[in-house]
């Protein structure tokens, strides 16, 4: 499973917009490169990234080959109630990677 790093604040006030950050280690081969011997390097990318908050989808990205290596996303989430913030990635081979954190709303 590739390395991931996520950042979710431990606590937030109800109604507060909190920054969420997630990064996954991935080469994101775009398929246009060739090796030093001239043979093409096949496409190898992460295709989907989804974030759910308390079971509801709040962020979804469909990734394309033009995105650079180690895709990093930062977005804001309005804190409503305490619950898990879960992250899910899937690469083109179907391999899934997950990470999660708990957001405590006060």
């Amino acid at each position: 499973m590739p390395n991931t790093r996520i950042k979710v604040p431990a606590t937030a006030k109800a109604g507060e917009a909190v920054p969420i950050r997630a990064i996954i280690q991935h080469p994101m081969e775009n398929g246009y490169r060739v090796t030093s011997q001239g043979s093409p390097v096949p496409v190898d990318i992460v295709t989907d990234f989804v974030c759910t908050y308390d079971g509801n989808e709040v962020f979804r990205v469909k990734l394309e080959p033009g995105i650079s290596a180690n895709p990093y996303f930062e977005f804001y989430l309005t804190a409503t109630k305490s619950g898990p913030v879960e992250f899910w990635w899937r690469d083109q081979h179907g391999e899934e990677t997950t990470a999660s954190a708990h957001l405590e709303v006060t």
């Binding site: 390395n3 790093r5 950042k7 950050r21 990064i23 280690q25 290596a69 180690n70 990093y72 930062e74």
Partner: peptide
């Protein structure tokens, strides 16, 4: 410290 992609290798 978070977004620096080099930290992925530090974690490895």
């Amino acid at each position: 410290e978070f977004a620096n992609p080099g930290m992925l290798w530090v974690e490895t």
